[in-house]
Measured scan of single mutants.
Amino acid sequence: DHDVVPEDKFQETLHLKEKEGCPQAFHALLSWLLTQDSTAILDFWRVLFKDYNLERYGRLQPILDSFPKDVDLSQPRKGRKPPAVPKALVPPPRLPTKRKASEEARAAAPAALTPRGTASPGSQLKAKPPKKPESSAEQQRLPLGNGIQTMSASVQRAVAMSSGDVPGARGAVEGILIQQVFESGGSKKCIQVGGEFYTPSKFEDSGSGKNKARSSSGPKPLVRAKGAQGAAPGGGEARLGQQGSVPAPLALPSDPQLHQKNEDECAVCRDGGELICCDGCPRAFHLACLSPPLREIPSGTWRCSSCLQATVQEVQPRAEEPRPQEPPVETPLPPGLRSAGEEVRGPPGEPLAGMDTTLVYKHLPAPPSAAPLPGLDSSALHPLLCVGPEGQQNLAPGARCGVCGDGTDVLRCTHCAAAFHWRCHFPAGTSRPGTGLRCRSCSGDVTPAPVEGVLAPSPARLAPGPAKDDTASHEPALHRDDLESLLSEHTFDGILQWAIQSMARPAAPFPS
């Protein structure tokens, strides 16, 4: 592969990997390779389809078979030569091979799209000592099968071997295949498990690692696999990028399955594409389908809103127990993405979901129960707010008499603000006073009005108090039968009158 990737590009890729991570280095090298001529790309395919690569990765054979028959990708048995050289000459001794072996032994695996480039050397060096003999053996194999790289107009793939297949390693990572398949204008990513390549439709969760975000852009890794992070704060999961590491605690105790298979379609829109997988259930989501939507993949363990709600429900009964003089119970939860139609709101002032922060849900004790107040519409209280300059209440639009249902020339009671006709409430011909108009209920007259088809109010509507207090003497005590009587009149003013009279009014101040 030294004929494909020059030394300066190799060093530039290593520097970019240390600065921005393996995914960015892979993407940059792939983009550079696509700008080369067809001879360089053909050399790339020839390096990929060597015999030892085909033996190690069985899924490469179907890719090789898909090439046109007129494309010669065979390799000479006596060494490598550029395709432009007409004579089959043995190339001179390859010093770059020693360079590659020494550099890969030092860096474990470079971040390139060629056999030198995919593992994360920093994480491997940190986690190597417990498994040094086995990992050293794996390093000797890295130059042979560490990076199976493929690129063409139909298929483009980048393979990364790992030393996680050490025997006896619980939940060992089998390997990473960062794979971009450009077929019919689409893009897919796969993962390699035990020599087999699994596409998103049959993606397997190998051991402790999972394909957290099938994305090839942005600074985030394709698999949430930063070796420096180790395990999740809650004892979460091992990262795919942690090559040759000792077994780590796999999943939280509440995880239903340690080796679950995540779905390959969004649980909201039932469509495929780039998904984020939940650590607590097999569901996966688009970032845009979450509520609120996320802009980037959160670091650490992530769970959907259903799993978060289940966790909150487990903690909430203990938080609601009476604990005198104790601060509110704080339950730190990872930043969760909410699927459509589901929402768990945190306290005000918290950062938005999706940031690399930890939301704190506070379970406050329930407030003391209070008697429910009568629910009145805002339009129902409008007549009470229509007060004239002299303190006389004006008529609201649409006000109707509670007896006849007519809204023409209605009066407004100064005591309960109900609309009424003087002739309907006082049919006996009582003279109307000039000021202080009161309806039949507030004036103490319980004589029913002779209106055909309208039920008369119940005599129990009024329960006047002592006459010594004029204001308190007109406080009506309405009961269920009074409400039914008012409802039978089918008037809004009657219902409003009952609601206003049912509310307690402050006692009249004593004259000074």
Rank of each mutant, 00 (worst) to 15 (best):
A467N: 06
G429Q: 10
G375I: 05
A508Y: 09
T358C: 05
C386W: 13
E330T: 13
I276N: 13
F426N: 13
P351M: 14
P506D: 01
Q392K: 08
P351N: 02
E320W: 12
T414I: 14
I276A: 07
C424V: 02
D271S: 14
G436F: 14
P511F: 05
G453Q: 08
E265M: 03
Y361P: 14
Q242E: 13
P506A: 04
P365I: 13
P427K: 09
G300V: 11
A396N: 11
P335D: 09
L373I: 12
A284K: 03
P324D: 08
F492G: 02
G453Y: 06
P253F: 15
P506M: 03
P351A: 10
D406E: 08
L455E: 02
E330D: 09
L455Y: 14
R323K: 09
G341H: 07
P282S: 12
C289W: 04
C401M: 03
I297A: 07
G273T: 12
L385M: 03
A353P: 09
G429S: 10
D481A: 03
D264C: 09
G402H: 03
V312D: 10
P457M: 02
L483F: 15
T491P: 05
I495V: 07
L455R: 06
Q393W: 15
T471A: 15
S305H: 13
S291D: 12
S379E: 06
R323E: 11
P332S: 12
C416H: 04
D264R: 03
T491A: 05
L395D: 05
G244V: 11
I500L: 03
R295Q: 06
V268A: 10
I276E: 14
C278D: 07
C304W: 06
C304L: 12
R412W: 07
F285K: 14
C416Y: 02
S473Y: 14
S254V: 09
C442K: 00
P348S: 08
A310N: 05
G436V: 12
K362C: 04
Q392T: 09
T408W: 15
P249T: 13
S485R: 03
E330I: 10
G434A: 09
V268R: 14
C289Y: 08
A508N: 09
C307W: 06
T471L: 08
V329G: 10
E274R: 13
P327H: 11
G346C: 08
E274K: 12
V329M: 00
V329N: 14
H421A: 01
V246H: 11
L373W: 06
G273M: 04
P328N: 07
G346S: 14
V312G: 12
S488K: 01
T491L: 01
A449T: 03
L381A: 15
A380F: 09
R295V: 11
P351G: 15
P367Y: 15
A418I: 06
G388A: 08
T357R: 10
L462K: 07
G429F: 13
R400M: 07
A417L: 13
H382Y: 14
A370D: 05
V446S: 09
P365N: 05
S502M: 00
T435H: 10
L381I: 14
P367R: 12
R283Q: 11
L487G: 04
T311M: 14
F285D: 10
G391Y: 06
L294Y: 13
S485F: 13
P511C: 09
V454A: 10
L411K: 08
L250V: 12
A267T: 10
A353S: 07
D356A: 10
